[in-house]
């Protein structure tokens, strides 16, 4: 199997995730898109681990999974809090960061 197969798959997943982050209005959907991005990275890591025949890439992928779990937990808690305070999780209505 060629290395580029995995890497191109990773690149495409990553770009789709980026598109989701940019295009989506619902905060939960944005979080899902971020999961896509993280998984794209993991695919690459596993491919590189296979290329070098080492366990380190796997370990990194596991780290990323753990961080992603933490990120989803905190992210969804934040979304819930925002929803409770504003009755909406549409990102374009959250303009407190407006300069």
């Amino acid at each position: 199997m060629y290395a580029v197969n995995f890497l191109i798959l990773g690149a495409l997943l990553f770009s789709l995730g980026v598109f989701g982050v940019i295009a989506r209005r619902n905060a939960v959907m944005v979080l899902m898109s971020i999961e896509l991005i993280l998984n794209a990275v993991n695919v690459n890591l596993i491919a590189f681990a296979m290329m070098n025949n080492s366990a380190e890439g796997h370990v990194f992928a596991l780290y990323v999974i753990a961080v992603a779990a933490a990120e989803v937990g905190v992210g969804l808690a934040m979304v819930l809090m925002i929803y409770r305070n504003r009755r909406s999780i549409a990102l374009d209505e959250l303009s407190a960061m407006k300069g």
Binding site: S15, V18, F19, I22, A23, R25, D92
Partner: peptide, 14 residues
């Protein structure tokens, strides 16, 4: 309305 109004920008970036 699941998408932003400016969602089209995502396509060129992606």
């Amino acid at each position: 309305g699941l998408n932003n109004r400016g969602w089209g920008l995502g396509i060129p970036v992606a």
